[in-house]
Each structure stands twice: as C-alpha cells, then as structure tokens.
C-alpha cells in the first residue's frame, strides 16, 4: 500500500513539556485515520506539524511525499485543513469565503465556479451560500469549513476535532459527509477526536495517543478484541470491598470503580455473572444491578493508560474553552 503520511521520530517540545514524543506512524492512501486521546495528548500538535504550522523540535515527516520542514509549500498545496477553532471570515458570505480559498490555493479561474458549486452541494449549503456567514449556525459554519477544505482537491484532509461543540444531529451530519468524501473522492483523511464513538464509527484505523506517544494503533475492531471479552458492570452498596473480592476470589485483575459502579473486563462474562453475585452475597454485599456489554474504545483506553479519557479535568479545560469560543462566534 501507498503511504501518504510517514513520520520519523517526530518530536515537539514546549519548554520542558514534550507534547509529541518521537512519533513514528504511517497513514495509508485512502484511509480514515484517527488520532484519539484526551485533550492535551498531543493530537493537535501532531496535526499542526504535519500541516507545517508548527516546526518540529526534532525528527520530521513526509506528507504526500514532501518533507514538512524542507518542502512546506508543496505540503501546503497537498493538504486541506479544518481547524479545531473556527477560521472563517464571518463578515463575508459563504461563497466569498470559498472564492478566497480558491484564490489562495491557486485553483484555476476557469474551474473555481464549478468546484465551489459542487462543494456547496455536498454540504447542502447552496441556499445560504450568498448570506453573510455571521448569520450561519455553528453547524453550518463547520460544514462550510469542510467544503472549503476540499476546493483545491487536497490529497490529505486534516480534521482537528471536526465535531467539537456540535449538537448530536449536526455531528451525525458531519460524519455522513466525511464518509461520503472517503467513498467518492481520492482522498486520505486524518482526524483527531476525543470522542470515542466518533473514532469508532468513522475511522479505518485508530492511533490512541497519550502524553505525546502512541500507545496502541489498529482497527477499532482489533483494538477492542485485545480486551478479549466482555465488560461487566456491577452496581452495589460497597464498591471497594466488592472490587477487592473480585480480584481476590475470582482472580480478575482489572476491576475498577467508575461512576459509582465496579467495572471489570473478562472472558465469558455470561458464565461469570452468577459467580460475582455469589461472592458478593457471601460477603454481605447487596448487588443492585449487574449488566454485561461489549468493550468499547473507552475500555481500550482505560486498559492501556489506567485512566478514563475524561479523568484529568485540568486537561479537559482546553476543550471546553474551544467549545465556548465556537458558541460565542
């Protein structure tokens, strides 16, 4: 397969902090590749370097065959970017924003009009194209930014948190466009997200990132398979004791307390359910409810890092600020 992106020990430091730490990944042509991780994991920094906005502290990468440090102009011509924060001129109409982009990226004049009409159709904004963008809703702005990223026929489209701060309905919409893009265009998509379901539904392959490093990289299905089994969720009146008992009596190592329940991953969850209840009852613990589900990416993240993706609240703040900014505009 043809590698569209390849990084070579890509590293970026901010003073003492290593935001991206000797990253070695490659992205194949035509796939949707997801960078998944909590806020502050280094996803945006990675994308910024690949888009030549940030210079790496050491290491380098190739995008569409061009070096991000030495051939940044060629890289920029090969890529489209949808930033995490809004980046449109809201005093101009949607169509004007698209024309500006076409000119900045040197789209031939003879093709500008038809390409712009096409992308407007793709994101269903033909009717509003000649309104000032300050009258657009957040979701419409996002869709226009998506459309804009496609006008110059990029080889790679980078989407940084494409659905951050959007309502569920609009998220579904944006996902639909991204899938359609992949099917109908010769394009590779790299997206960052801290939404597990987004990564799961959209991506062909996912790199789970934490503290600037890739801790797991595979298809969503295979990542979930590594957990080998089911997740059992138990609601009970004495969580600490129960969790300790499960480890001690049943030999299951990864019991943890989350949101007022004990969660534990195991093979053959169904046959283990009665035994858990038995152990609890023997030790005078009252089990309110017990449930079984398939592992999701959240569990995968927890498995590799020992933390939930939202555990670190100080890191989360940045994400909320971005949401707030988007709402204000």
């Amino acid at each position: 397969m043809n590698k569209v992106i390849e990084t070579f020990k890509l590293t970026r430091m901010f003073n003492e902090l290593t935001a991206v730490d000797h990253l070695d990944i490659s992205v194949e042509a035509g796939e949707i590749f997801g960078l998944l991780g909590p806020n502050g994991a280094g996803k945006t920094t990675t994308i910024s370097m690949l888009c030549t906005i940030l210079k790496p502290t050491s290491g380098t990468a190739k995008v569409n065959g061009f070096d991000i440090v030495k051939e940044s102009r060629q890289v920029r011509k090969s890529i489209g970017i949808v930033f995490q924060d809004p980046s449109i001129d809201d005093r101009m109409t949607g169509r004007e924003n698209l024309f500006m982009h076409a000119n900045l990226y040197g789209v031939p004049l003879s093709e500008q009009k038809s390409r712009i009409d096409n992308v407007l159709k793709l994101v269903e904004l033909e009717d509003r194209a000649d309104d000032l963008m300050r009258t657009y809703s957040g979701g419409m702005r996002r869709r226009l930014e998506l459309a804009r990223g496609l006008i110059h026929y990029p080889k790679v489209l980078f989407l940084d948190e494409p659905t951050l701060g959007l309502d569920p309905q609009t998220r579904d919409h944006v996902w639909k466009y991204i899938r359609e893009l992949k099917e109908n265009h010769d394009i590779t998509i790299v997206l960052t997200t801290h939404y597990m379901d987004e990564a799961d539904k959209l991506c062909d392959r996912i790199a789970i990132m934490d503290y600037g490093k890739i801790i797991a990289l595979d298809t969503p299905a295979k990542l979930k398979e590594t957990l080998e089994g089911d997740v059992v969720i138990i609601k009970a009146n004495n969580l600490e004791t129960l969790s300790a008992l499960i480890t001690e009596k049943l030999g299951l190592q990864n019991a943890r307390i989350i949101n007022g329940t004990v969660e534990v991953t195991m093979k053959n969850g169904k046959s283990m359910l009665p035994r858990i209840v038995e152990v609890a009852t023997q030790n005078n613990i009252f089990v309110e409810s017990i449930a079984l589900r398939e592992p999701n990416l959240e569990d995968v993240f927890l498995y590799y890092t020992g933390r939930t993706i939202r555990a670190d609240s100080s890191r989360e703040r940045h994400g909320f600020l971005a949401i707030a900014r988007r709402r204000i505009k």
């Binding site: 888009c51 906005i53 920029r76 449109i88 001129d89 900045l104």
Partner: peptide, 10 residues
C-alpha cells in the same frame, strides 16, 4: 481564526 486560514495557505 481567519488569520490561520491565510497563514497556512501556500
């Protein structure tokens, strides 16, 4: 944010 759009243009 529009400055970003300009600054990353080729």
């Amino acid at each position: 944010g529009f400055m970003k759009e300009i600054l990353v243009a080729p």
